[in-house]
């Protein structure tokens, strides 16, 4: 580990801050698509920068990257399996009646 040249950590930090400002500024345009990109697209870029340079995944053994990616893929799989029931309001032969409007209207204790 000690042989490789270190990236300039300050530079990466500066980039992260720039990206942070963009993600905060994005919603001010009030265009949903732009917000989506500035919020989540930039989160992915930030995560990539941190994982690659701060966690040193760029010089770590490849199987570690595969391991972590596999975990993320499992979560996508979970999402794909659960979303048809949890996320939808209706499906094949079932629907969720609108109880929620009432529940939201009643004050919570």
């Amino acid at each position: 580990m000690s042989e490789h040249a270190h990236p300039n950590y300050f530079k990466i930090w500066a980039w992260l801050l720039v990206l942070l400002s963009i993600s905060v500024a994005g919603p001010m345009l009030e265009i949903p698509v732009v917000t989506l990109i500035t919020a989540f697209g930039i989160a992915i870029v930030k995560a990539y920068l941190v994982a690659r340079n701060f966690m040193h995944l760029n010089v770590e053994k490849k199987y570690v990257v595969y391991l972590l990616t596999t975990m993320v893929v499992f979560m996508l799989l979970f999402f794909a399996g659960a979303a048809p029931d949890v996320m939808n309001q209706e499906g094949d032969q079932w629907y969720k009646p609108k109880v929620e409007a009432e529940a939201a209207a009643t004050p919570h204790h």
Binding site: F78, G81, K96, V99, A104
Partner: peptide, 23 residues
């Protein structure tokens, strides 16, 4: 603490637990 993650009356969904559990 009275959240409603799995309570349909509060916008939750009991099926979610089943997915979390069986996953």
């Amino acid at each position: 603490v009275g959240t409603g993650f799995f309570d349909p009356g509060k916008g939750g969904d009991p099926i979610l637990w089943q997915h979390l559990f069986w996953f």
